[in-house]
Each structure stands twice: as structure tokens, then as C-alpha cells.
Simulated assay, not measured.
Amino acid sequence: MDESAYGIRDRRGHWTPNKRVKTGPLFELPFQPRVVLNWIFGWGGYLWPYNLFYALVGVGIWLWLTPSLETMQTFEPGWIAFLWVRNAGLILLWFGAFHLRLYMQRAQGTQFKYNPSWPSVDNDAFLFKSQNIDNMIWAFGSGVTIWTAYEALTWWFFANGYIPWVSWVDHPVYIVAFMLVIPLFREVHFYLVHRLIHVPVLYKYVHSLHHNNVNPGPWSGLSMHPIEHLLYFSGVILHWIVPSHPINAMYHLVHLAMSPAPGHTGFDKVVAGEDSALDTHCFAHYLHHKYFEVNYADGGVPLDRWFGTFHDGSKEAQERMNTRFKARNAKRRARMEAQKA
């Protein structure tokens, strides 16, 4: 595929897609049913390919790779360790597939790569000075462990009847509907958590670890401080409060764990053939890593647009961002001068 047909490279080699970042049409007025249906069911929209794939993985794991609820009525090291190993294996396969093709084999070179540079291998900001090693240590050591802890608690609650849940036989429509809205809930939760950890003190001591990845790769997606992992995976607490089925909770956890990989590839497309490629839909989040204070969420719920932090990659958006930053910095200087006076 010819990347020049889809975007341009500047003099420094940075590639920008021609197609601008868009938010989902679900909340646009006037409401356009045909546009919304096409977004929900069309390729590259709400369901296909990623959300449906994560749902199928979640269902499969629940059916065939999860101990019985009877087993999980009591905390035992054996089944909890099994969950950790299973989760680590899933991450290794999913994140590793993107990393293997794009960064180890470099199967498409820098074609469709936003930043022409490769991950840092001599950078004091990272453990062992290696971006990839640092990212993997945090992803497995903290990410998989905290994810597993939330999961083990959730199954223990379900198994002992401590949280409300519904049966598939009695409420199949409700369970499917719940599956459909989980990605939307995830966006709202992620936006709120993400804005919280950009508060200066939390950013300095927590979120800056993730933002060391100014040139992110797949493993950057789950490279977070343990406090950030605690907040990030806390979305599953929804199922501790609202009646649902364990399949809903499993899908939620799988979505939390798997979706950061394509969102941090650093590539706009993963080329699969001469005329075919998988869109990663990660340009919006790449802009967040580049500019820090834009695109806190993904856009299914247009929270960034509503709160003035949306950047679609255009010159106009860049100018709006610069104007916002200048106004903010001017206010900070004024406050500092007032304090000195």
C-alpha cells in the first residue's frame, strides 16, 4: 500500500493521515438514524472489528478458561494463579502479535508510522534504559496482577451471591444490551479517570510513567503506575453494583486489557496485503501522547468535543489548542505575579 495516498510526511519524517479524527454520531443533533446504524454496524465502526472481537474473546474465556463459580467461592492460590497465568498469556499473544509484526520483524518498516523513530533503547526515563522492557515490566508486573485481583474479587462476589446478577435464561436481551453499552461506559469512566490523573500532583507521581512513552508502541498501552492500574481497571466495579451476568463482567475486563494494544501501536494501519490493511484507530490517542492535554477519550461519547479538549489532527485544531494553552499559561503567570505581590 502507498502511504502517500492516505497521508503526508513532514520534513522530519512524521506522518499524518489525511483523514481527520471523528467522534461517533450517536450524540449528534439532529439525530440521523441511518448514519448511526452505519456507524454501529459498518466496518471500522462501533462493533466491527474490535468490540465484537473482544466480546468473542471474553465469552470464550468465560466458557472454557475460567474455573467454575463453585471453585471460586473460596479464595485459593491455585485458581487465582491460574487466572494470572491465563491473563498474562492473553496479553503476551495480543500485544505481542502487534509488537512482533511492527517492531521486531518491522514487516512494513515505517510505513504508516506516525513517528519515524523506533522505541528508545538508551533512555534513563525507562527501567534498564529500554522503553520496551520497561513497558513489559509494568504491563505484566502491575497491570496483569491488578487486573487479576479485580477479576478474582468479582468472581468471588458472584460465586457467593454478594452482588446481584441475572441469568441468561431469564434475561438474554438485557445481557446482550449490557454488552453493547459496555464500551460506551468504558469511555466515560476512562475520560473521568484520565482527567483525574492529569491533575498536576497525580500526573507527576503517577501518570507521567505512562507518558514517558511520547513515541508509543503496543506495550505502552498497559505500561502504567500501579495507582493508575487500580483506577483504570476499577471500571469493573460497575458489575458489583448493577445487576449483570459474569459474561458481561468478563467482556468488560477483556476490553480493558486488550484495547490499549491497537490504540498504542504508533501506526495508523497494519498492512495485511498489497491492497488491505487493518486500521488501528490510534491517531487520536497518539495526539494525546504528543500534546498531553487533548483527546482524553476515544470519541464514541464525544466528551473531548463537549469539554473543549478535542484535537482532530487539523491545523485548525492545532491553533485552537495553542490558543487554549496560551490562555491557560497567561492565567498561571498572572496568579504567580499576584502571589509575589
Rank of each mutant, 00 (worst) to 15 (best):
I80N: 08
I227M: 14
I237T: 14
E76I: 04
R106H: 09
H289A: 00
F267T: 06
P49N: 04
P226H: 00
A327F: 03
N51A: 15
N132V: 15
L287I: 08
L238W: 09
A261T: 02
Q32L: 14
Y291L: 12
P30M: 13
G42I: 04
R34F: 09
A257V: 10
L303V: 04
G109I: 07
V254A: 09
A327G: 07
N322Y: 00
V254R: 02
G42E: 13
K204N: 12
L56Y: 04
S142A: 15
L93N: 01
L65H: 10
R324N: 00
I91C: 13
V181M: 11
H252G: 10
H225L: 08
N213D: 15
H281T: 13
V36A: 13
W219Q: 06
F190W: 02
T23Y: 09
F157Q: 10
K340S: 11
D279P: 01
N18V: 06
Y251D: 11
W168L: 07
M321W: 02
V193D: 06
F283P: 11
F112C: 05
L230E: 07
W15M: 08
C282Y: 03
A341F: 10
S208C: 08
V121F: 08
L209R: 06
G299W: 09
L90W: 04
L222F: 07
T323E: 10
T16G: 05
P246E: 01
S259P: 09
W79Y: 12
V188A: 00
